[in-house]
Amino acid sequence: MVDSNENLLASEVEKRLEDLFGESGESTDFVEEPNDAEPEDSPLKELKATILSIDWEISDEIMDRLASQIASLKDEFRADSIMVPFLLLLDSIGRYIKVKKAHAHPDAVKVLNSVYSGLEKVALSKGLTNQERKRVLSAEVQRFKQLKEKIASTRVEQERKKGAKRFKELKQKIVMSKTTSDAVDTENAPEDLNQLLDQLKAFIRSEIKALRDELIGQRS
């Protein structure tokens, strides 16, 4: 008797809970990721920690730590023809971010993370064939190349914008000096004008140089 009363209560409570908090159709099974990539006890443990901390803070200290960890891993894996290029990629992006900081391309940190995941996969997944490892590497190399292209094209774009802005400023100065030179400051006017001419010449020179660099860059 008591038992069935308790059961009744329990089932009512359960029903109420189901009414309140039921999640229809949602599976409660856990899908567990294959667990073979576990860097906790691996040679990548420290590198992973550093990559994670870059997600929080980019400072010289952290970027130096990254470089030195890569250096020691390069030594450790020197016989591995996939790991070494992976570490080189990582090193190269790390250095770029360290130097450029806020001026780095926004995708750089993303590519850094992606290269690291590829590297982790190659280093820790058991049973990958050499062919599979190569494929992982070449996907990341591709990503790296795209990043490089993006960086180059934004640099050209920035130069162009900077140039256009400088040109506009100079043009404005010339117009101003034309309109004011009669009325004010006649004494200094020729000097100002000469200065302006020099600036203009320097500007044109730098524009031509940028253009030439660009052309050379494209050819190579």
């Binding site: 870059i54 997600d55 980019i58 806020a102 780095a104 940190v109 993303k110």
Partner: peptide, 14 residues
């Protein structure tokens, strides 16, 4: 989530 906090902090500081 497509922007990393570390990078955002640099940009914000600037």
């Amino acid at each position: 989530k497509d922007v990393s906090l570390g990078f955002l902090r640099l940009k914000v500081t600037e």
